[in-house]
Design a protein around this nucleic acid. Sequence first.
DNA 1: GCATCATTTTGCGTATACATTAATTTATCC
DNA 2: GGATAAATTAATGTATACGCAAAATGATGC
Lengths: 225, 225
Amino acid sequence: MTIEAAKQKSTTTHAVDSIRSLIFSGELAAGTDHLESELAERLGISRTPVREATLMLAQQGLLEVRPRKGVRICALSVKDMEEVYAVLTELESLAAEDAARMGYSTRELASLKSAIDSMDRAIAEQNLEDWATADDQFHHELVRLGGNSRVQAIVTMMSDQVRRARSITLHIRPLPVKSNEDHRELYEAIKRGDPLAAREIHRRHRSQARELLVGILHRHRLSFL
Amino acid sequence: MTIEAAKQKSTTTHAVDSIRSLIFSGELAAGTDHLESELAERLGISRTPVREATLMLAQQGLLEVRPRKGVRICALSVKDMEEVYAVLTELESLAAEDAARMGYSTRELASLKSAIDSMDRAIAEQNLEDWATADDQFHHELVRLGGNSRVQAIVTMMSDQVRRARSITLHIRPLPVKSNEDHRELYEAIKRGDPLAAREIHRRHRSQARELLVGILHRHRLSFL
DNA sequence: GCATCATTTTGCGTATACATTAATTTATCC
DNA sequence: GGATAAATTAATGTATACGCAAAATGATGC
């Protein structure tokens, strides 16, 4: 572990991080309402940074500000997940295409490779949490390599929503073995500089992931989470 | 014109709108810095709603909050415009595809058609401002018909950036005649329910628009605006 | 007993006050 | 004269105070 100066965050930043965590951990459950004053007290800070934090999180689609009713944590319907997956499919495919066009060296692709290896290991050990973490890392690396900062920002936002849904669905879906074959194939396409192949491989990958997830949600009657 | 109750906006909302306008009109020029207190005084309000507004606008990519230096209005480099166009190309093409899949009636496509007609008229009259307005309307309608609310939100954000660049480039570029042929062709594809054609037509359209704009920016040495 | 109106409470939006820290200026030392 | 350090200023981040409007509660009339 690296030694880092304890970077002092502003209270507003702390509020953003804390509220995000509370949402992801489910302590602020989807669909529930929470007053500014309640959140402020919970975090031991005043309403001002809480307000600023909620405004930002609202822009990010994690909650809704409803005057006098408190902020409502966004519930994710199946339609929401379909929307999110559609956006991710498009933008990550673009990133894959762009990444393949960049002519990255093996060294520059090391972190992508490393993410894939981590996923392999996690699957071998049947450790779903590790797999999910590595999967996040893979997708994050992919868009980083794509080099479009706006795509990165959007994908990060959308990935947040996927992560929320996945915390529910992770344990009721099959081991994502095929998923990893796709990732390797994509890695190869990027390494050999084949933009169109990279694009199509990832597009297919995301489509299948989308259908898998939507299928699960429907079968388990998880229309909202 | 419909009679509407003058909806009373909150001061924060007013601040967001005002600062946006000031940015679009160029009164807050790209690359310039502005203190919270300066903006507050300018708008005749306190710092609180200004802060909230700037935080939101920062999330939307229109400005950057730089502690102790004031907020900096984002300058758009050629790379920025390329990024924006890349995102728009992907997401609008998706919207076109989805719209074609919806099986909309002629009546439901009326506003799209109307936008195209407005563009035709504007071109005939060589009225570039009207053309730009109609073009915005067209793209807005297109993503609305696509039915993905996240795509709509993202495209709206990106369109803001295009609009800023366009206010500079509008008068130094050729009359967008070809552009309108594309729009008609897309309209037809959506009407007859041909998703793949709709997707490809719009993709091509956006690619060309992107190359046109980037070419202009380069030729005129407009690396930043 | 129910509806309507008055009253009270609550939560939010905004302003303001205050503390903190970065930037700037000034003074001092070599 | 230049550099360094102290002092001052300035801008932000945060807390608090306040007024208003919506919701909730209670009272009154029928």
